[in-house]
Design a protein around this nucleic acid. Sequence first.
DNA 1: TTCTCTACTGTGAACGCTCACAGAAGCATG
DNA 2: CATGCTTCTGTGAGCGTTCACAGTAGAGAA
Lengths: 344, 344
Amino acid sequence: MTMSNQGGGRRRPPTIHDVAREAGVSRGTVSRVLNGGHYVSPAAQEAVNAAIRKTGYVVNRHARSLITGRSDSVGFLLTEPQEKFFEDPNFNVLLRGCTQALAAHDIPLLLMIAGTEDERRRISRYITAGHVDGVLLVSSHSGDPVAAELRDAGVPLVACGKPIGQASKVSYVAADDRDGARDMVRHLLSLGRRRIGMITGPLDTPGGVERLAGYREVLGESGVEVDERLIVTGDYSRAGGEAGAAELLSRVPGLDALFVASDLMAQGALSALQRAGRRVPEDVAVGGFDDSPAATATSPALTTIRQPWDRISAEMVRVLLAQIGGEDPSAVILPTELVKRESA
Amino acid sequence: MTMSNQGGGRRRPPTIHDVAREAGVSRGTVSRVLNGGHYVSPAAQEAVNAAIRKTGYVVNRHARSLITGRSDSVGFLLTEPQEKFFEDPNFNVLLRGCTQALAAHDIPLLLMIAGTEDERRRISRYITAGHVDGVLLVSSHSGDPVAAELRDAGVPLVACGKPIGQASKVSYVAADDRDGARDMVRHLLSLGRRRIGMITGPLDTPGGVERLAGYREVLGESGVEVDERLIVTGDYSRAGGEAGAAELLSRVPGLDALFVASDLMAQGALSALQRAGRRVPEDVAVGGFDDSPAATATSPALTTIRQPWDRISAEMVRVLLAQIGGEDPSAVILPTELVKRESA
DNA sequence: TTCTCTACTGTGAACGCTCACAGAAGCATG
DNA sequence: CATGCTTCTGTGAGCGTTCACAGTAGAGAA
């Protein structure tokens, strides 16, 4: 309806002053309406809202930030090697989840990708300079120097996955890796499989360690002897899964199941098994981990452990905002879920 | 070496004033050094730089933006349906490329994902309010209402891929789809194939149309009659590729090659061919499009047309910054390249 | 000398907002 | 009637920059 912003040329946008004049109140009152509306009479409230609608006013975030010292934005920092970023759809799920959760608070997300050492320094400087209020950190190899640096600088920080080696307080949100692994191994056992191979994640990551621990625990509890030849260390990459499965097949040709610590590796493992003439699940049952979008695209479709990415991203944002608001760091562990499909 | 920022508590960061005092010059001089250093004596230049290093000064972007009216940030806007975002690694390549190119200019990238109508409105409002200086737009179905809206609001905008239906000026950067398609079909012909099927992209996208046009052109030029039964329309999804290949096989069992308009669809097509007992490339040669990271992960590895994503992202950023700087919209078409692997 | 030009520097005045404060009005309490 | 408390409102100051302008100094030209 309003004609005020048409006609091609960009004109000076309305300020809080314009709104105040329009509503017949002062700047202060408009500001109070904008920030929660406490101590404002209903009449003023209404007049201001009407004026805002009429003028098409949108707050100038720079002016606000200048005085509040907050930027009302957060960084999403990725310190993964870039191939991971390209290959692993979980990042996309997480990224979208965080973007959405932040959008609900009207907080923009700044994407920061630290591949090289140079980039790391630049980003670290950017963050510690206060250009973002907090950081969502994604990095599997989480003895991360950036994390320590930011924490020491007092920047609110939430990691995805449990950081290792950080003696002190860093907030994190993670799925219950060990419990998920236990579920999967129990499932494979329930199918009558006993020679269950495992391709782990990198053992310098908590996820890698925990999933392997779950595997060992359940086998132990079930009285199945753990054959160390059945365990091979992977790297969460598709190629790694392929190589791992090939290696296991050569070591123990008679294995009847495979627990692979990520769906991406499981895809590689499926290729290797198929190339070796094994039928899945008849000869070898295969269980993955993640429930990534690709899990339904393989044939056979992948039985896997679902990581609740939507909840993970939502919790990361919640914890980060709480921390920005002054609360202490905290850890959140979310339950996983066994998703049965065709491969096991 | 400097102790000034240690000790846990965050202290007030140094301002341009502190630097000026330290260097024994005025705010204005420091500001000039910060912004290009014209009309500053070498001595002052040096003193200011030393003071900046000593104090650890970083410019307050909010204060700067408040007065310049620029935000010195740009938005990366995704209006794709979210499954695409999850599935297609090309987005990640593009996203990383843009992030890097912008980082070189010290410009942060704000990620905006418009899935729902609500999100679209919120984002559009955010952008037209001037919170970003310009927008990098990714949306294959590019009769996009957001694009038109932003263009009308005078927001600098660069699309990835040629927008259709936009009568007037929207900058874009795209690969030469038609030429790429021509290369691939020529290659398939050179292998002696004559019954070449095609799975196209969506025909409401310029890429989809252009790649099909290239296919038709080369066949025409080579005197091979175009059999319409050999053409099926896809949707750039893996499942679409699978269905498309199955359909083509049922229509023309004797086809000896397949040109698939995206690598993701080509992956699906490979599955379908394999399921149908066809050997690739012996029975059916398969050519993809994109050279996505997954192209080397299939077996056989995919012969494809490489889209120069790194150059595309770099050009998008270059064109956007130029436009923010006041230049007119422009279009950039980049050459593709045939990458021969195993599948054709 | 005097004037002009160039290279450089300092100084107020914004930019649009929030915050602390002062004060007004209404109402209950001493 | 004074006093206090609560609810609401307006005002001035100031956040840290950039920008326009004024001004200085030195070099060269008339």
